[in-house]
Design a protein around this nucleic acid. Structure first.
Lengths: 235, 235
DNA sequence: ATCAAGTCTGAAACTTGTTCTAGGTTAGCG
DNA sequence: CGCTAACCTAGAACAAGTTTCAGACTTGAT
């Protein structure tokens, strides 16, 4: 990455001024995300790009996702690629968002069956972890992009973060709205999740260690659940 | 970063074959690190480089640390810079190691004075956090480099990790050797620490939120300390 | 003093992310 | 049908990390 994140000219993903006429190509289904009303062909291009990105990432990780190659693989001009995704990090974060959505729907179909919330969350994360182990290079590309992202990618990273939070909250199976303490615990779990993945991906931690750490951090859920001993055990 | 981390030719930081003659320049004090027996002038160069790196990083963060500039600021040829630090990430991780060592000695002088281990650790981390807030750009450069580092930087990142672990263990003030559970808790705290810093640096979390999360994760220390309720509170 | 080995320098070259430009294309609209 | 705005393409150009190379320098050994 060079200087990353300048102000960008309006692209197909920008809102219109509402003056009446819209994008040149015919506008269709704005189902899903609210911001980008995309054309059929634009949607197709976007998908091709994300597919190429994931493909290349699966092969060789972060470094293997080269913008020129992504452009060529998805039959799109380099300039167009940059119109859709203003930087490599944007692209990879979007790729991650895509994959996360898959995972979320998959997980909803077969929810974890642990006895308490902590178990269910750690089971869920371990399931996700196993999925990532099947495509370690892809995981590398996505996670590195995610943690390397600077302020210009904040909105996208935030979306990913919300998705992850949703997955964890789902697994917790709460009866009521989460308390602030629970939300903090979830954030901590997310932190641990990302950082543990990094250490695993860079070969500094074993799979077993990641498992242990996930289980360790998940204990925070019991600790912060309403009804658990408040404050320190010694108090 | 481009392709990062090729096999590198022998540099001043490499061990010798023990054949008898050593580095060209006079060899002096190998106090400190065991691996690199550096000359006086080499040590001076190394320091100049690290200083320039920190200087530039303080000014504009990760992007502002440009290898050509570092080389010029430290009056060293670009090739030499690369001989000392095989990549920008190596350089920044080494910079972090340097800063951490300062912090460690500083902390040893005025150890935290909390009642229990969890308090002391979170106080220590918050102190470090405040130090980082004084140089947010430097923090940005170091932390981004740390989490972006790939396998080729593992040894260096590991050193930083060990330093951080040492700081936390120091703050805990253990009577005995840490148990495996405690070590896992410390790793989780470290994960949270890095990842929370990232979210703060990229503007996605407030200082207050980082504080809360650190305090939250530090509760794990009580939970895993010998004598605390083992397993889940509900069991 | 000379030699060999390892270092340092300066500069050019190469790679890949990112930006820019000129021209061709598409689609709504009068 | 022809206009216009927005889009897309091909390709050059630029920026910064990384590599390479020839030559000068340093030092210990002969």
């Amino acid at each position: 990455m060079l200087c990353s994140a300048r102000a960008r000219l309006p692209g197909p993903l920008d809102r219109h001024h509402g003056t009446g006429h819209m994008t040149a190509e015919v506008e269709l289904k704005d189902s899903g995300a609210a911001s980008p009303p995309l054309t059929e062909r634009q949607e197709a291009r976007r998908r091709r790009i994300l597919h190429a990105s994931a493909q290349l990432a699966s092969k060789g990780g972060f470094d293997a996702v080269q913008m020129r190659e992504v452009a060529e693989s998805s039959s799109v001009a380099l300039g167009t690629l940059y119109r859709y995704f203003p930087s490599k990090v944007h692209l990879l974060v979007a790729t991650m968002q895509d994959q996360l959505q898959h995972m979320h729907t998959t997980l909803r179909k077969r929810p974890p069956a642990g006895d308490d919330a902590a178990e269910r969350v750690s089971e869920t994360l371990m399931r996700a972890f196993r999925a990532l182990q099947r495509e370690p290079h892809l995981a590398d590309a996505m996670v590195r992009a995610l943690t390397f992202a600077d302020r210009s990618v904040s909105p996208e990273v935030d979306t990913v973060s919300r998705l992850t939070t949703a997955i964890i909250l789902d697994a917790m199976g709460l009866d009521a709205e989460p308390t602030p303490q629970q939300l903090s615990a979830v954030r901590v779990i997310e932190h641990t999740w990302h950082s543990a993945l990094i250490t695993w991906l860079s070969g500094r931690a074993s799979i077993a260690q990641v498992k242990i750490d996930i289980e360790t951090v998940c204990k925070l859920i019991d600790l912060t659940s309403p009804g658990a001993a408040p404050g320190h055990p010694g108090t």
